[in-house]
Nucleic acid binder design. Structure first.
Lengths: 126, 126
DNA sequence: CTTATTGCAAAACGTTTGCAGGTTT
DNA sequence: AAACCTGCAAACGTTTTGCAATAAG
C-alpha cells in the first residue's frame, strides 16, 4: 500500500469520529480539510483500509455501511427509534465460543442487536 | 391483507425453496409459473409477507437480502468460499441471553457467521 | 520510469415508488 | 364501489468502475 495524503486523512477521520460514520459522513468531514476530495476516493480507501485490517466495516441490514476505528471483535446496536448505531458491551468471547461450537471453521461473525439506545430510552422514560 | 394470485405464488415459492433465495431468484422461479410477473411485485410481496411474519428476511452484509421460510429465530452462515447461505445450528437461546444482558430492550438480533459450508469443506478436504 | 492513486462521471446494483389499469371484497 | 394489487418504468441510495491525469517510490 503506497502512501497518499487522501488515505492518511481518511484514516485520521475514522479514528477521530467515534460515532460509526458512513462513507458519506467521512467524505463530508474529510472534504472540509481537503477540498476536491472525491467520494469515489473515500470509498476506495475505506475498502483498502478495511481489507488491511486498519479499520472495521459495520454492516447494518438495509442501511449504508458504517466504519469503526475499534479493531477488536465487538457487536453493535442499531437503535430502532433513532436509527443510530453504537457499540454494545456483550460477552463476545462467549458468543464466539457458541459460534465455534456450531461451525469450527468460523472466522468471524457479524452481530447486530435491534434495541433502543440510551438517549432514546431517556426520552421515552425507560 | 387481500388475496392475490401473485402473493400466493410467491409465498409458495419461498416455502418450497430451502436455499434462502434472493428476490431475484424468487422472481425467476415464480415467473416460470406466472409469465408477466414483475420484479416490483415480488419485492412488494416479500415486504408484505415479511412484515406479516409469514416469512423471514435474512440480511447478509454487502449482499442482496435473502428470504427464509423458517419462522423461528436462528442464525445463518455465509460461506466465504462459494457465497452461499445456509442455516447454522447454534444455541440461539444462549446468545439471546447474552444479548439481553447487554441490552435489556433488545427485541431481536441478526447474526451471520462467516465460515465454510459443508460442500466447500469436502471439496477442500477439510 | 513505473505503477498506485486520484478526480470525475457514468454505471452497476438492489430496491422502492408513481402511475394508470385491473382485481378482490 | 372502494380499496387493494398489479405491471411497467423511472427513480432511488449506495457503491463500484473506466478513464485520463497526477503523485509516489
Amino acid at each position: 500500500m503506497r502512501y497518499s495524503r487522501q488515505r492518511e486523512l481518511i484514516l485520521k477521520k475514522v479514528n477521530a469520529m467515534h460515532n460509526h460514520p458512513t462513507a458519506e459522513e467521512i467524505y463530508e468531514a474529510a472534504g472540509k480539510e481537503s477540498p476536491g476530495l472525491s467520494l469515489g476516493t473515500v470509498y476506495r480507501n475505506l475498502n483498502v483500509l478495511a481489507d488491511a485490517g486498519m479499520i472495521r466495516r459495520v454492516s447494518i441490514p438495509g442501511k449504508a455501511d458504517r466504519f469503526d476505528h475499534t479493531l477488536q471483535q465487538h457487536s453493535h446496536r442499531y437503535c430502532t427509534v433513532c436509527g443510530g448505531v453504537d457499540d454494545i458491551a456483550l460477552n463476545d468471547a462467549a458468543i464466539m465460543e457458541i459460534v465455534k461450537r456450531g461451525d469450527d471453521t468460523a472466522q468471524d461473525y457479524s452481530l447486530v442487536v435491534f434495541g433502543t439506545c440510551e438517549q432514546c430510552r431517556k426520552k421515552a422514560g425507560m
